[in-house]
Amino acid sequence: MNSLSPKLPLKISWQSMFTLLMFGFMYLPILILAVYSFNSSRFSTTWEGFSFKWYEKLFSDVRIFEALKDSLTVAFSAVGISAVLGTMMAVGLAKFRFPGKGLYRGVSYLPLIIPDIAIAVATLVFFSSLFGFLNPIIQSLNAFLTKMGLLSLPLPTLSIGTVIMAHIVFCLAYIAVVVSTRLTSLDPHLEEAALDLGATPLQAFIKVLLPELIPAILSGCLLAFILSMDDLLISGFTAGSGVNTLPMLIYSRVRTGISPDINALSVVLILASALLALTSEYVRYKGEQRRLNR
């Protein structure tokens, strides 16, 4: 056996070559995008020198901030509602036995595997038929109300509300899955222990189960938040005329040709989500540290 060990650090194995290739494949487009966001030329084909002008243009663009506002409104509302409903769903499924539970569980997690386009079309069809049914009723009600000299009700249309509802459909499933996974790894006797020590079922849930589930709920929310911010299809189908989320705005601008301020926007978005992921990971890590070795 001849020893090769001193040479080993210098040797490039095929595994590391493959790894490098994979990283290149995944991140090179993003790197190129980041580089061109600093290009002073309009066109991505030529490099005319370093410049921040696209960033300046981006941060003075009111429409982008309006779109960001819409996106954040949708994401925060959908995730907030889903967090409550998803946790309740996961806990209920874990705790109670009822007929048709298996079917219910399967159906609740279906949005994870149904293609976005199907959800988008189905939600649109659902809303338009619902509005078609509701509008005549509300119109006749309004006619009656105006005769009485009262305020009339607004007619339901596609709006930011419908986008939020459509987003809840998939956010709910993601949060419920993450919370369920955590629940199965929890000691099934935790709640009983709390009851045994004098806690009412509500106190047991708030003081024992919820604190144990918080990390899972938060990570589920983060996942759902990113997916909601990222969604183009479902928002595009269910948004009314007044609503424009960030992905919708970017898509509409890119259709008419790639402009460098979109490059800059993409870089900002990547940095923002990286920061978000990093913070959440840091918080989780600190929590774990505190618990395991002090």
């Binding site: 000691d187 006797h189 935790l190 009983e192 222990a193 045994d196 024992v208 604190p211 144990e212």
Partner: peptide, 11 residues
């Protein structure tokens, strides 16, 4: 009061 087999301590 009960001592559980799995202890069921609040983590």
């Amino acid at each position: 009061n009960t001592v559980f087999q799995s202890y069921a301590l609040f983590g």
